[in-house]
């Protein structure tokens, strides 16, 4: 198996990949090297918020689908929309508190890809 690469790559692209990896690899030095309880808290927060974000996207997709299908009353649409809006705000502000970017919360479902 000899590795090849096709497609051209400019400096901006290489820098973006470098930045992404710096972020990823930076997360790999696990909390046990650094007894700082904040690191552990951050890891837990990340797990919880990632799950919340996953559910938010799922509910949002379902809500939009039902709205388009006309199977929601105006009151239901309004209530769902408000709830989802508040959920998004909550997740965003909690993530910011733990210095988590939106990308940190994107759940990788393996072969099922991302829920987009």
């Amino acid at each position: 198996m000899s590795q090849k690469k096709t497609g051209s790559l400019g400096a901006r692209e290489v820098d973006a990949l470098r930045q992404e990896l710096e972020h990823r690899v930076g997360e790999l030095a696990p909390a046990r090297w650094n007894a700082d309880p904040e690191d552990v808290q951050r890891s837990v927060a990340k797990l919880v918020l990632t799950l919340m974000e996953f559910l938010r996207k799922l509910f949002e997709k379902q809500a939009i689908r039902r709205m388009e299908a006309g199977s929601l009353s105006p009151e239901e649409t309004e209530a769902l929309g408000l709830a989802l809006m508040r959920l998004e705000e909550t997740i965003t502000s909690l993530a910011a508190q733990f210095e988590l970017s939106p990308d940190d919360l994107n759940l990788d479902l393996g072969p099922l890809g991302r829920l987009q």
Binding site: L51, F54, K61, L107, L112, L115
Partner: peptide, 13 residues
């Protein structure tokens, strides 16, 4: 655990 949950939910979706 939640990855598995995610996989099941996504498949159902």
């Amino acid at each position: 655990v939640y990855l598995r949950l995610g996989a099941i939910l996504c498949a159902a979706d």
